[in-house]
Structure formats: C-alpha cells, structure tokens
Design a protein around this nucleic acid. Sequence first.
DNA 1: GAAAAAAGTTGAGCGCGTTCAAGTTTACAG
DNA 2: CTGTAAACTTGAACGCGCTCAACTTTTTTC
Lengths: 207, 207
Amino acid sequence: MAGLRDRQKADRERRILSAAVTMFRAKGYRAVRLEDLAERADVSVGTVYNYYRTKGDLLIAAVAMEVEEVLETGATIVATPPPGVEPALMALIGFYYDHSLEYLSKEMWRTAMALSIEAPETPNGQRYSALDSRLEAQVTEMIRVLKRRGEVRADIDSTAMGQFVFNNLNMMFIEFVKDDAMTLDALRETVTVQMRALARMIATEAA
Amino acid sequence: MAGLRDRQKADRERRILSAAVTMFRAKGYRAVRLEDLAERADVSVGTVYNYYRTKGDLLIAAVAMEVEEVLETGATIVATPPPGVEPALMALIGFYYDHSLEYLSKEMWRTAMALSIEAPETPNGQRYSALDSRLEAQVTEMIRVLKRRGEVRADIDSTAMGQFVFNNLNMMFIEFVKDDAMTLDALRETVTVQMRALARMIATEAA
DNA sequence: GAAAAAAGTTGAGCGCGTTCAAGTTTACAG
DNA sequence: CTGTAAACTTGAACGCGCTCAACTTTTTTC
C-alpha cells in the first residue's frame, strides 16, 4: 500500500509545512522567500507548489492546525462551563485568546485574516471562513448550554446572540493583532468589560 | 501663488486618482496593472509613485472619499433619528450599507479591508482604521442621542454599546463583501433582526 | 534673457510569487 | 531484467509592484 513514492510524498509535505511554520514565526511571513523555504525543506520551488497552491496556503494550513486544537479544548469548556454568564463566556473566549499566540505570531494572524477577506472564493479563504464558522458555532453552543442551565433568559435567541458575541470577540481579536503593542491582558480586559455588560442584559434575574 | 508647476501637479494627481477609481471599478483592483493606470492618467509609472506610495494608497484614497461622504450625511441622521431604538439604529446602519456600493465595488472593499489588517502600521492601514473609528464614534453618538431622548435605558454604557454595535455591523459588512452573491437586502435583513433583538434589551420599558 | 538651482518626471531594472516544459524517478507488465 | 507508462521534481522564465539614477521642466537669481 504505502510504497516508496507515497512515503516520499508524505515526507516532503511534512518537511515543507514544518519549514513554513518555523520560518514564518522566526522571520515573518512577508520576509520568507519561497526560494529559501524550498531550500530549507530540501525541495525545489516548483515542488512546494505541487503540495500547496500558494504561499498563503501554507499559512492557512498552519492556522488551521492551531484552530483545530482550540476547537477541541473549547468543546470541553462548553461541556462544563463555570457558573455565571460572564465567567462562562470569558472562560471560553479567554482560552481562545490565550491560545492564539502559541504557534502563530500576530503577523501570521493578520496575513491569514487579510487573505480570507481578500480572496474569499479561493480554497484558502474558504478554509479560514469555515474555521470561523465553527468557532461561532461553539460560542452559540455555549449560550445554549447557559440557557439550559437557566442562567440565560429563555427569550434570548441563541443563534443571533452567538453571532453577536462571536462578531464582537472576532473584531476585538482583529484589533489585537493589528496592534503589536497590545497585550493579551489588555485584550481580555476590554472584552471582559463588554461581556459583563452583555451578561447583565441576557442573564436571568436569579443569576 | 498657484504657478504653472502647482497647477500641473494638482492636475496630475487628479488624473491619477480618477483613473484609479474608474479602472478599479471597471476591471477590478487586482486586474489593473500600474502601467495601464499610468498610461490612462497620461503619466509614467514613476510619477504615480510620486503622488501615492503604493497601489493600495490609491484604493484607500478612494475609500476615504466614500466614507467622508457617508460620515457627513450620517451626522444629519444622528441629529434627528426616527423614533424607536431599532428604527433609529437601522436608519443609520442602513444608510451606511446602501451607500457603500455607490462608488466602490465589493472587491475594492475587500482589498481595502485586507490592506488595513495586513499592514496596520502603514499610513494606508492607519488611514482606514481612522475612518473606522469615526464611524464607530458616530454609532456611539447615536446611542447617546437615544439615551438623551429617554429611549435607551440610562444604565447602558454608551461607549461599550457603540463599540458593540459597530463591531457587529462591521463584521456583517465584511461577510457581505466577502460573498459576491449576497444582496444589500439580505444584509439589511440580517442586521435588522440582530438590532431588533438588541433594541429589546437596551430600550426603556416606555419605548 | 541666460545660467544655476530646485522640483519633478521617466522607464529600465529588480525582487519575489508563480508557472510549465523538460527532465528524473518510481511503478508495473511481460 | 528491460522497456514503457505514470507520477513527480526541477529551475529558468514571466508578470507586476515598486525603485532610483538619469533626464527634463519650471522657478529663481543676477
């Protein structure tokens, strides 16, 4: 089944992506030339394009790995969130934020976001958007859970509110990666204030 | 005062920007080559770069004209909004949306947004962000006006709520320009639903 | 009005992402 | 083991945004 050719292919693909992640973080996405990346991965430039359609594809692949990880852990937070609307929302959102710089630099996030906006029809852009949708779905699910626990008012539309909350945390994340001087703490601080305000509006009287 | 040289300069700058707006709309930002743009404006490529730092600068200049216009009319809407929280917010937001495609194509918006995210430190990116800030300020002002009229609850933080509403309308606008098939009506519809939900939460009982 | 200085224009050339025709390696049949 | 087909790799070449040294035009000086 897995002949020589298949093993070589898998190996090359792994080498290319690994070189990309390392170099993008170290030198910045912009500053990495495909020629250097190819050399680092021990292949030719043409071969890189055999595995990834564009330089941006490499970046999106890296981002996707990061978001997959976040979605997985995020699911466990949604399963048993801490008591209270604001703490529950911030447990999830704070985790998203904290995790965001583990493998990726702000510049990588900026570039990936820019790509998904600029070229939404490409596989690249669609892949990023799909990840966004799954994050939004997770936030929505959190609100549903809080409703089920009686912490969120029953007359709140979970879907609309999930979209609302996600739009907000996403825009604030964009602000964050746009400003190299902004710290994670500052981001959390701002969003915590917003979520506190929101929580007051959607929480049941009891909670 | 206005010697020959000054007149020629002003004329060239006007010709370049005008060529840019026309061609970006007609052929798409990406598809316009600087060589063609320069030819259309009757200058050399080098001269274009004497007036605008990058191709993106030309785009941002076009976007800025559009947004300035919107801010101006927006101010009159904020001055005397229609009664009711949802109608007032939608009068402003709907106007933003309706106006957005008057001079600019979706592709131009996408590119401009991508630029401001990707290169936030450049004059380009900062200029776009500054426009965003002014729009956010206008939305915030609208909420303040509604509070003064007693239609929004006094315990609502205008600044936080303005940021919240703006983040949301901005993200929805991004979704809109990302999807070439999405109509203005569909956008308005979605946002109206969201604003109706929000209005219920922040409106005074009386209203 | 001529000459010098200042200001602006020009387009060939560079860098880098991307392509593709030619070459190489692997798989497979007999 | 040989010949052939299929799959993959390669790097020179291309397109386009952008730069800058050489040139041209306008303004200023005397």
